[in-house]
Design a protein around this nucleic acid. Structure first.
Lengths: 252, 252
DNA sequence: CGCGAACTTGAGGCGTGTCAACCCCTGTGG
DNA sequence: CCACAGGGGTTGACACGCCTCAAGTTCGCG
């Protein structure tokens, strides 16, 4: 009873906006920013990068487009979406972020955030002051390299989304979305066949460039094809190979 | 006659794959990687980042998806496109790059290139060995910051493309594309109303998630609406404000 | 028990893809 | 010089996938 992980959300005063944080003792250190850091490097990061934590309830925004950029954020628990909004008021979800993923990179260029980041379930993030982080990453080479890899991955991911939005049918888009989600969840130790979706059909549709109705119909179609079972937000993938083929065979 | 700019393509032995290069004397230093560097910093970069140059003919590839990643590249002259190809063989243009813009950032994460980069006119690029660049950027803070800004900009740009692909009509997409192009050309001292497009309708269509025919029809429609004149690849923007409105008013 | 939010399903319309014909321009070769 | 082929671009007719609008279901909650 006295060897419980005090880092666990259940043992933290959740109403406080922030508290002391240490990458070295975080259960996410193998999939988050400090991947590959040696013990001394980790300690160095702990001493220098005194990031606080911030707790957000479902629907709360971590930051909004137009706000001043000071920090990047690592998701610790929970789930987020990021959206751009056009002048005409149209909204496009540009991504969903889960534990260990970085948010706020969009703000580095202009020193203002360019998207909204909104919690789609009760969540907690590590706050990383960017100026300090940049300084630290000059000293800790591995950290710098990891940061560059993360930004690069985000660019690669966006290219995949462009391909999806530019040239795939609804079924293919949804299949690609689900496979990507399962893949990321699996890397975090969750089931690779069953998910409870944190996002609404509306949000999925916005991400995939489809309407709610089309998303719903497409779920039904994939179910009818025997690839998965749907019940509201509970998804059971029954034929991952078939789903993957749907994505791969996308035209020719 | 003896104060000509010897950096100019016309005065260089174009058949050589590379030659000595100096950021400090490059006419692009104010829009390329070394933006904001002080004179001593520039000199430092010149000494350490002995990038060669590489010349490519129209249609040649700078790198291909799957190839090993060693360098990033700065466009010096010419024009490039980058494309992802799905397993099914579908191709999506993910961007067009012009003088001063960086290519190859997609390879940092996996150490393999994830897209094809292809010259869409005779071009020259500066070759920047990435390992050395990363080391140098630890020393020259301004360079590191500028690099982060560039990667961030690329992420922001891709979000804009997602918005475009996910929720805009053909007219709006083409208008947004043209305005973006004109904006970047203007920053390089070119006319803000007239362009000769380096890319085919096919390539524009791939970038915008449209077919050749729709791109062609949409050009005609914009011309009929009095927003521009088209003659093959020669474009004359006659009503930039109207074009901008088309983009801004995109739904509500 | 009733209300609202999220989701599903159906019917019909619209924007864009598909297919095909045609034009224009350029380069090649007689 | 003209004939011809080929690639890029334009235009039209039609098909089809997805959006729109509308109704109905399920579930949680006051």
């Amino acid at each position: 009873m006295n060897i419980v992980n005090l880092q666990h959300p259940a043992f933290r005063p959740l109403h406080l906006p922030s508290c002391q944080v240490a990458c070295s003792s975080c259960n996410l250190r193998e999939i988050c920013l400090p991947v590959g850091l040696t013990r001394p490097e980790l300690d160095h990061v702990d001493r220098r990068l005194v990031a606080g934590r911030r707790k957000l309830a479902l629907g709360e925004s971590l930051y909004r487009a137009g706000e001043r950029f000071d920090n990047v954020y690592a998701v610790w628990t929970g789930f987020f979406k990021t959206c751009v909004t056009s002048k005409g008021g149209r909204e496009q979800v540009t991504g969903f972020q889960m534990a260990g993923e970085l948010m706020g990179l969009d703000g580095i260029a202009s020193r203002r955030h360019e998207v909204d980041a909104i919690a789609i379930e009760d969540s907690q993030v590590c706050v990383i002051p960017f100026v300090e982080f940049e300084a630290l990453s000059s000293e800790v080479v591995t950290l710098q390299q990891q940061f560059h890899r993360i930004m690069s991955s985000e660019i690669v991911r966006s290219h995949g989304v462009m391909l999806l939005l530019g040239s795939m049918y609804a079924e293919e888009r949804l299949a690609a979305f689900l496979l990507n989600l399962m893949h990321r969840l699996r890397a975090r130790g969750f089931s690779q066949s069953s998910v409870y979706l944190r996002m609404s059909r509306e949000e999925i549709g916005s991400y995939l460039g489809l309407t709610v109705e089309t998303v719903s119909r497409t779920f039904s179609k994939l179910q009818a094809a025997g690839l998965l079972f749907v019940r509201k937000r509970q998804i059971q993938i029954t034929d991952p190979v078939g789903l993957q083929q749907l994505v791969d065979d996308a035209v020719a």
